[in-house]
Design a binder for these strands. Structure first.
Length: 382
RNA sequence: UGGGAUGUAGCCAAGGGGUAAGGCACGGGACUUUGACUCCCGCAUUCGAAGGUUCAAAUCCUUCCAUCCCAG
């Protein structure tokens, strides 16, 4: 009987994930990573008790602070807009989960993310372009040419094998974007039992399993900032930020801002300038401590550079591979061609201009439902 | 001080006797495991002030106030 260490959050999704795995015959153990002290330990413990699972907590606060909070703050200080969640999933959550699983001798780790992991043979990304029928486009059970979906896979980590990440069945809830930074080692041991369900089904399952967390609202906002005011959080940590000018690209002064950290590229609200039509942040000028505004049409870009790349579907990208690019979570993808440069850099040329990619955010690219890889937006390419 | 023009919400702005459009900003909500975007809702009992005409005035009349422009 295979054993799984399930990351419990106290929410519906992880609860149902655990219940499903138990039902499938896994020996499940629940763990909650304590990142910041706002976790709902009681609910997670209650669900584990319901499901006859052991439950314990791991103090991850130091790790979370040194990896996530510090990067979050320094990224904002750098004039970028970080996405702490993508980083956390890889560097803290899944990493510690895997450590724990190793320490306790468990076979798998699991979370309640809406995405799918598939163990497959090495694939040829070029075959995707050639409309190859055998190319794994959807990641659904039974379409993997002998390789099985995560939950029943026996031989993870084998030679010539690769763990692929696909979008979840529920395209509205798909969270593969948040997982693009996971390593092969992490994906190789990861089970995502919710990948084949949509949110409504998960809620119904929660009811059927009679889980105490069935009616929990979905989580939202930054987990370590319960009141949602991330800028106030940063100022509590590093002090008041310097005010500066709000200007147009032509240098016209429109107003003042109270610190670059309060703004992000593409932002419209909170600028306090009334110019008859909506204006947006098109750039943050860290050197001059200025926010540069423009009209909607000024936000579009036809190419961006990514750094800090993580490739999931293959070791490298064929030249000019055409993919669907998501420059933000839950945003419609835009078609674009990838060019892998040296040093973990990828340049993307969009087929159609893309609206306001924000430096610091992640761009993730797909072939159909297959997540090819992603990276951090460095900025426009001049 | 003469001459001209203008005063409608935080900003811009329709309306020129019949009971205050719209945009921007702002506030609230929805959406959302980041930040944003987007969407929905709200936002002048009152039109610079005071009088007057009228069944009815932001609209017409009078006076005053304020601002802007041109002269000197």
């Amino acid at each position: 009987m295979k054993s799984v260490l399930v990351a419990m959050s106290g929410g519906v999704d992880s609860s149902v994930a655990a219940a499903l795995l138990s039902e499938q015959g896994y020996t499940c153990h629940g763990v909650m990573l304590i990142m910041h002290g706002y976790e709902n330990t009681a609910d997670a413990a209650a669900v584990c008790a319901q499901l006859n699972m052991s439950f314990y907590t791991v103090d991850a606060q130091e790790r979370f602070h040194s990896c996530i909070i510090n990067d979050f703050i320094s990224s904002y200080k750098d004039g970028e807009t970080p996405n702490p969640c993508v980083r956390c999933n890889n560097e803290v959550k899944l990493s510690l989960l895997l450590d724990e699983a190793d320490r306790l001798g468990f076979d798998y780790i699991a979370t309640g993310h809406y995405a799918r992991v598939v163990r497959a043979k090495e694939i040829n990304l070029l075959s995707a372009c050639a409309e190859d029928e055998s190319f794994p486009r959807s990641g659904s059970r039974g379409e993997m040419d002998g390789d099985k979906i995560s939950c029943t896979d026996e031989g993870f980590g084998g030679k010539g094998k690769r763990s692929l990440l696909f979008k979840g069945k529920d395209k509205m809830k798909d969270q593969s974007y948040m997982l693009y930074r996971l390593s092969q080692e992490q994906l190789g041991r990861l089970l995502l039992p919710l990948g084949d369900f949509d949110k409504g089904e998960v809620r119904r399952l929660a009811g059927r399993f009679d889980l105490t967390t069935a009616d929990r609202d979905d989580s939202q906002d930054l987990c370590f900032v319960p009141d949602g005011d991330y800028a106030a959080y940063i100022e509590r940590e590093i002090g008041k930020q310097k005010p500066g000018a709000i200007v147009t690209e032509q240098g016209e002064i429109l107003g003042t801002h109270n610190g670059l950290i309060n703004y992000t590229v593409g932002q419209r609200k909170g600028l306090g300038v009334a110019l008859g039509e909506p204006y947006y942040v098109i750039r943050k000028d860290k050197e001059r401590n200025e926010i540069v505004l423009g009209k909607e049409e000024d936000m579009f870009t036809d190419s961006i550079r990514l750094r800090d790349i993580n490739l999931v579907a293959a070791g490298e990208i064929p030249a000019d591979l055409e993919v669907d690019v998501q420059t933000r979570y839950r945003a419609p993808a835009v078609r674009g061609r990838l060019r892998q440069m040296s040093g973990g850099i990828i340049d993307i040329a969009f087929n159609k201009t893309e609206k306001a990619p924000a430096p610091g955010q992640s761009a993730v690219f797909y072939l159909g439902d297959l997540l090819v890889g992603g990276g951090i937006v460095e900025g426009k390419i001049d």
